[in-house]
Each structure stands twice: as structure tokens, then as C-alpha cells.
Design a protein around this nucleic acid. Structure first.
Length: 289
DNA sequence: CATGTTTCCTGACAGC
DNA sequence: TGCTGTCAGGAAACAT
């Protein structure tokens, strides 16, 4: 399940390969709409556009798109071309965004294929179809000028004060709050469990009852876990691969996630699994209070 | 508004 | 072997 580190890895990989390329044609699956933007609109909106860059916001992959075939001619010193539109890819549970040679065999559950001027293809594959594709003008909302910002705040950029404030007065388990994308975006089940373990906090603790010190610990644990995971190319659970089909290695560093019944690496107590907000939650009953 | 529950979807896996 | 049943989970829609 792609979370922030996986999405970061994919976005960086795609960016390295397709930045500056032009979208020549677009094929979209005719199956039941797996998209936010209707297929026809997606198709006409993407064709002919140039990919200015690909980056990550929360769990979203954002492709900044320029004019393409009719670029306003600019000199070397002029500021970068402003995006005209943004193609936003959310991978859901099982989505993949792959850069392939056009001859490569088409994987099952391929829902969109963008053929690029370089001859390569950008393919969106998603067996479980929880992924979403959206095309929006650069300034999507009225009065907005900066492009897509995502639903919440960046866990790697937020200040300690703002981090603490997010959980103020929240009568919900801290685990549920960490997963709430309107607060922090990018944190999913794996990194919520892993950061709570490293901070020594029980996932069922109510967010508003955490002390300032615990919140500070949680923030730094979360940042550490996310940064380590990015460095290792993400966690390959289920069948996650990056833009080039390469697996990540952070799953080897998991201390609680999907380790139910296995002795805790710190104290030997068996890891416990409970349900919070319908999500499997793993923790050490001794290390986490 | 804030919080909890249901729904979408398919592959993987357990059990017979 | 092959069938059936259960489960995972992000986020939107719906309910409380």
C-alpha cells in the first residue's frame, strides 16, 4: 500500500524518466470509471501537454503539465514555465505508475497508458481499483494560485507547534488521527504503527490526552521512520514496486507492522494486533504506553 | 462539526 | 485439485 515514502520514491523515479517529455496520445480503459475525472476529459486534457515535473504531495503523485506543442518561447533567463494543469494520481491500495518501453507487455488491470514523444509509455495499473486519476487546472479552486496542496499538512515540513495543534481536542485514538489525511497527509497504516512504536505510545490513546513531550516524540519518530523508508525505496508489502518495477526494502525494518505474535525486538513481548477504525493495528503492549 | 460505519474491489490464502 | 469464504485497506459517502 503506497504511503508517503512509496509515493515519494515513485514520483522521483517517474520524474527522472519523463520530465520534459510530451504526451502524444492517451489510452484509457473503457471499464467502469476508475477515475475522478471522466475518461474522455482526461484524454483530451492530457494529449499534447508537456510534463514539466513530477512530484509528491501527501500520497498524491502530481504531474505539472505545460502547453507542449505551442510553448510560449522563452529565453534562458526567464522564469520556469508555469504549469497549465496538473494530473494527479492517487494509487489507492494497489495502484502502480510505471514507465515502460512501448513494446513491454501490458500488465493485467492496466487502466491508462500515456504514450510519450520519447517512445516510452507511462502506465497506470491498479488491480483493486481504489486508485484515482484527476486532471485539474493549475489554479483549481477559486482564488487559489499555487496549485494542488493536498488535504492536510506535510509530516516532514510541519513545525512542532503546528504538529501539536493538529491533535488538540481530538477525542479519537491517536492512530486514527495519524491516518486522517485532513490533518497530516501521507501517513498510512504502516508508518502510523511504526512511528507509534518508536515513540512508545499506545495506538488507542486519545489524541487530546497526549502530553507535549509525547507529541514531540511522535513527531520525531514519524519523521525518522519516513526518512529511513524513503532512503530504502519504501516498503514492499503486497506487491509494491517503484516506477521501474524495483522493490523497496523498508519492510525489513518494520518492528510491529504485520508482526502479530512475534516477540517484540526491544523486550520480547509478543506483538499484539487490534482494530482501530477498521484498520489492523500492531503494537507492543509493554513498550507502548 | 466530529466521529464512527459502510462501501468499493480483487488477489491471496485458509479450510474443507 | 478446486471450490467457497474471509480478509486487507484509502478515502469517500453516509449515519449518528
Amino acid at each position: 500500500m503506497p504511503e508517503l515514502p512509496e509515493v515519494e520514491t515513485i514520483a522521483a523515479g517517474v520524474n527522472a524518466q519523463v520530465r520534459g517529455d510530451t504526451i502524444q496520445s492517451v489510452w484509457v480503459s473503457s471499464r467502469k470509471e476508475p477515475f475522478k475525472t471522466p475518461a474522455a476529459e482526461l484524454q483530451t486534457g492530457l494529449v499534447g501537454r508537456r510534463i514539466l515535473r513530477v512530484h509528491r504531495i501527501g500520497k498524491h503523485i502530481v504531474c505539472d503539465l505545460g502547453y507542449g506543442k505551442r510553448p510560449p518561447q522563452r529565453s534562458q533567463e526567464s522564469p520556469p514555465e508555469p504549469p497549465e494543469a496538473q494530473w494527479i494520481v492517487h494509487l489507492g491500495m494497489t495502484g502502480r505508475l510505471l514507465v515502460c518501453d512501448s513494446g513491454a507487455p501490458t500488465a493485467p488491470h492496466t487502466h491508462a497508458v500515456l504514450t510519450l514523444a520519447s517512445g516510452r509509455e507511462l502506465r497506470f495499473v491498479d488491480p483493486r481499483r481504489f486508485g484515482r486519476l484527476t486532471l485539474r487546472p493549475f489554479a483549481g479552486e477559486p482564488g487559489e494560485t499555487s496549485g494542488f496542496r493536498g488535504p492536510g499538512q506535510e509530516p516532514l515540513a510541519i513545525t512542532p507547534d503546528a504538529f501539536a495543534k493538529l491533535f488538540h481536542g481530538r477525542h479519537t485514538p491517536i492512530k486514527a488521527a495519524l491516518l486522517n489525511q485532513k490533518l497530516l497527509h501521507g501517513v498510512g497504516n504502516i508508518y502510523a504503527d511504526e512511528s507509534l512504536f518508536r515513540a512508545g505510545i499506545r495506538p488507542r490513546r486519545l489524541a487530546w490526552r497526549l502530553t507535549r513531550a509525547e507529541l514531540a516524540r511522535l513527531q520525531s519518530s514519524l519523521a525518522t521512520v519516513l526518512q529511513e523508508a524513503i532512503a530504502l525505496g519504501g516498503s514492499s508489502v503486497s506487491d509494491y514496486v517503484d516506477a521501474n518495477g524495483v522493490r523497496g526494502f523498508f519492510q525489513l525494518e518494520h518492528r510491529v507492522y504485520r508482526r502479530t505474535g512475534i516477540p517484540c525486538l526491544a523486550c520480547g513481548t509478543p506483538i499484539r494486533r487490534i482494530l482501530i477504525g477498521g484498520r489492523g493495528t500492531h503494537y507492543c503492549p509493554k513498550c507502548q504506553r
